[in-house]
Nucleic acid binder design. Structure first.
Length: 301
DNA sequence: AAGACGAAAGTGGTTGA
DNA sequence: TCAACAACTTTCGTCTT
């Protein structure tokens, strides 16, 4: 990709579609993430305004399957004047009823998919997810529908869970918090649905690797490529020693970035790092203490 | 004065009986 | 269904730069 890095002036930029980021090969700054932002330009102050102003996606909350729009064929086997109809006609009506019912069920699945896919597209766009993830998500969602896993769940919460699953599988760093902010589904609901889907569809999801968060944190803090590399080394070592199991990946990544910054003489305050990572200073301190102790890292001034 | 550090208490979610 | 539990947060006091 052509372009100029404002930080170091180099014209070779690396286009990382998988993470939806443009990265300078020399200094490691992320020039653009979330390449396209389809977010609304308006603000909504309550649910009603939101429903009225939303132009993309369907107003799913108010849409019930078949709401007010069902046709049925009655079972009385009478013609319009009330007299009995012939056995042949009765048999035909029976077949008609059967197929009519079947087609409405399958069309309700179609409708579900239509709504879900547009919602999926909207959410994926806002999160800046690449196309291969969207397609894989759509496929997984389709499987979920076919297995009847949507029943009793909001379409949006299933969509969010599916997207989260695929992000993890593709190693794209998006946290539950971020997805929750975009979709408006509470974090715990997405998590619950995610676990449910994972179990029911036998999806294998690798553990979140903290390394994936490093480039984002580093660039938001204006840290150089060397710091990123150093942070990754620290993380690899920590992973090797089993220091990250059971720990929140963002916290570990944040601590590594903080340490790397200090070592390479590009210090950022714990608060700054904590803010971009979405954790508190205390968590960074705890991870930092563990890393320092277990890896024998000494901080020189 | 701001940042770093750590103790203690509180919170929300998971797990195992 | 409930209690124990681990990870994380909030809050606050003290130390360092």
């Amino acid at each position: 990709m052509k372009g100029t890095c404002p930080d170091c002036g180099v014209t070779e930029l690396e286009h990382d579609y998988a993470k939806a980021e443009v990265i300078c090969k020399k200094c490691g700054s992320v020039l653009e993430d979330n390449m396209v932002d389809f977010g609304p330009e308006w603000r909504a102050f309550d649910a009603d305004q939101k429903a009225k102003r939303q132009r993309t996606g369907a107003p799913v909350k108010y849409m019930k399957p078949n709401k007010g729009l069902v046709t049925e064929i009655d079972r009385y086997n009478r013609d319009i004047r009330g007299s009995k109809i012939s056995p042949q006609a009765q048999a035909q009506m029976y077949r008609l009823r059967k197929w009519h019912k079947r087609s409405s069920i399958s069309s309700s699945m179609e409708r579900n998919l239509t709504i879900a896919l547009s919602e999926l597209d909207r959410t994926a766009s806002t999160l800046g997810l690449p196309n291969n993830v969207r397609e894989a998500s759509a496929l997984l969602y389709r499987k979920a529908v076919e297995k009847g896993l949507i029943r009793g769940r909001l379409i949006e919460s299933v969509v969010s869970a599916v997207l989260y699953t695929l992000c993890r599988q593709y190693g794209i760093p998006r946290t539950l918090d971020e997805i929750s902010a975009v979709s408006g589904i509470p974090k715990k609901e997405i998590g619950r649905t995610y676990r449910f889907i994972k179990k029911e569809l036998f999806v294998k999801v690798p553990l979140t690797n903290p390394v994936h968060y490093v480039p984002r944190f580093a660039s938001e803090l204006d840290l150089s490529g060397e710091v990123q590399e150093r942070a990754k080394e620290i993380l690899e070592e920590a992973i090797g020693k089993g220091l990250i199991s059971g720990r929140g990946p963002t916290g570990v990544a944040a601590a590594a970035v903080y340490i790397a910054g200090v070592i390479m003489g590009e210090r950022r305050t714990q608060k700054e790092v904590a803010d971009v990572a979405g954790v508190t200073e205390v968590t960074i301190r705890n991870r930092y203490r563990e890393l320092k102790r277990e890896l024998g890292i000494k901080i020189a001034a």
